[in-house]
């Protein structure tokens, strides 16, 4: 049984310590925002990298996430953990970025984007073994696996986010899991 990694992220004490920072940022304090950025930069970038499988795009989207965060942070009412809310904002921006930047080509030729090649993966320092394998997955399988297994979304939610049927989400998840297991066992 997989653990809910969203919960694992949230269980850190980072959120508790962030409460004061968040209040300051909501009041327009840019110094506090810089501190908030330093606290959340790595997990946000890691999520972008997992979803986009491209370091350059992941960096651009991380910037976009924090720019939008600055404008939207007033909407955070504290009903969920800040990191959970931030991960949700990040996922939506990354998926929207994927649609905007890759859609026309995927419509023109019906092929699925492959994951990152091993040389590019090797250049990303700090990735754990699972992330190295996730980045090799084809796009749809990777998106579903990251959203379900890593971020804790239900297949119904993923279906809405990615405009796919619930059954497709489940089959992509199993496809991803099979590929990951195969690669893990043969390495």
């Amino acid at each position: 049984m997989l653990i809910d990694a969203k919960q694992a992220f949230s269980n850190t004490n980072t959120d508790d310590k962030s409460d004061d920072l968040i209040r300051k940022v909501q009041q327009g304090d840019q110094v506090a925002f810089a501190q908030l950025y330093r606290k959340h930069e790595k997990p946000v970038f890691a999520l972008c990298l997992r979803l986009l499988a491209d370091q350059q795009h992941a960096e651009d989207v991380t910037q976009e996430v924090f720019v939008q965060l600055w404008h939207k942070i007033a909407q955070f009412q504290g009903q969920s953990k800040f990191s959970t809310w931030l991960h949700s904002v990040t996922s939506n921006i990354a998926i929207s970025y994927l649609r905007k930047h890759k859609n026309w080509l995927q419509k023109v030729v019906s092929f699925e984007q492959n994951g990152m090649d091993e040389q590019s993966i090797a250049m990303c320092n700090g990735l754990n073994g699972l992330d190295k394998l996730i980045l090799r997955l084809p796009e749809r399988a990777r998106l579903v696996f990251v959203l379900h297994a890593v971020e804790g979304y239900r297949h119904e939610e993923i279906g809405n986010m990615l405009n796919m049927a619930v059954g497709s989400s489940k089959s992509q998840y199993h496809r991803a899991r099979q590929l990951l297991q195969e690669w893990y066992e043969h390495e």
Partner: peptide, 16 residues
């Protein structure tokens, strides 16, 4: 392996 890796997320930084 999955459980262990998901519980210990990567600490990966942007290149710039």
């Amino acid at each position: 392996f999955l459980q262990e890796q998901l519980a210990n997320p990567s600490e990966v930084s942007p290149s710039r």
